[in-house]
């Protein structure tokens, strides 16, 4: 199983927000194993998708120079299950940034209906703490972002395309 819980970025403004989709499909193993007979995307994996989108938003804000890890799920409210055939519209907004961490607020909608509300906090690992090097192999994160159309839509606060980062 590939650990991608976002399918596509549709909007990304550096230091501000990210938008994208997660399509829910019965082809995913996690769907029918979580609650047999009632296929649904496990809520924890929706949190993981938000954490991926939020983590990229925070990491890009620091030019991917920090080791950004999910530290805390502050709030997670699920208003309805994400069923096969649903398309989750994900919206992540950068809430606050410190030199040691950041918070984001996340919403998931199916159509016009609010599906989930999630607040996340990220921390930055100090060099040598838990890991000595980068969290991804060279090129791995860049390839992942390309597949998700990140570089098609990502712009800086002035509306200019973000740089093709060479450190990811």
């Amino acid at each position: 199983m590939r650990w991608f819980w976002i399918d596509r970025f549709t909007e990304f403004v550096s230091g501000s927000h990210a938008r994208g989709y997660k399509n829910v499909t019965l082809a995913e193993e996690a769907l029918d194993e979580y609650c047999p007979g009632f296929p649904m995307l496990p809520p924890t994996l929706i949190i993981e998708g938000m954490a991926q989108m939020g983590g990229i938003l925070v990491s890009e804000h620091f030019q991917f120079d920090k080791h950004v890890v999910l530290a805390k799920v502050g709030k997670a409210k699920f208003h309805k299950p994400a069923r096969n055939g649903d398309q989750l519209s994900l919206a992540v907004d950068l809430d606050a940034v410190q030199d040691t961490g950041a918070t984001v607020t996340c919403l998931s909608h199916t159509g016009d209906e609010l599906q989930a509300e999630i607040d996340l906090m990220f921390a930055f690992l100090e060099d040598g703490r838990f890991t000595d090097g980068p969290l991804f192999n060279p090129g791995m994160l860049r390839d992942m972002l390309r597949m998700m159309n990140f570089f098609h839509v990502a712009v800086d606060p002035d509306g200019n395309p973000v740089q093709e980062y060479t450190n990811i």
Binding site: K72, G74, D95, A96, Q98, G101, T103, M121, A123
Partner: peptide, 12 residues
């Protein structure tokens, strides 16, 4: 890790 969370909440 909670102290970071507390700092964020107090700042806001």
């Amino acid at each position: 890790i909670d102290f970071l969370d507390i700092v964020f909440k107090l700042e806001k």
